[in-house]
Amino acid sequence: MITPLHMPRLVKILTNDSGEPAAVTRNGKQSQLAAILNSWRIDDEWWREEISRHYFQVELRSGPVMTIFHDLITSKWYEQRY
């Protein structure tokens, strides 16, 4: 049996007026974003269970860089190791 690696994990994101992430809540602690370093979209597998994600590589004010995406089908936010 093979267990997939780098599965997405739900994360709480606070967005700004334009729908872009502005703060991340992890372990009950909210961290403001310092910058959005990159963003891209993945739209795939429309022929079976469609995937449509908007990815953001963001830098937190405390320093770490993380990758999050907005699932455009379920409207949920996830953190994912890339």
């Binding site: 049996m1 093979i2 267990t3 997939p4 690696l5 780098h6 599965m7 997405p8 993945i42 795939d44 597998e45 995937i51 994912q80 190791r81 890339y82």
Partner: peptide, 10 residues
């Protein structure tokens, strides 16, 4: 293109 599809643990 989807990260969780690229590799896994066996």
């Amino acid at each position: 293109r989807i990260p969780e599809r690229r590799s896994g643990l066996a």
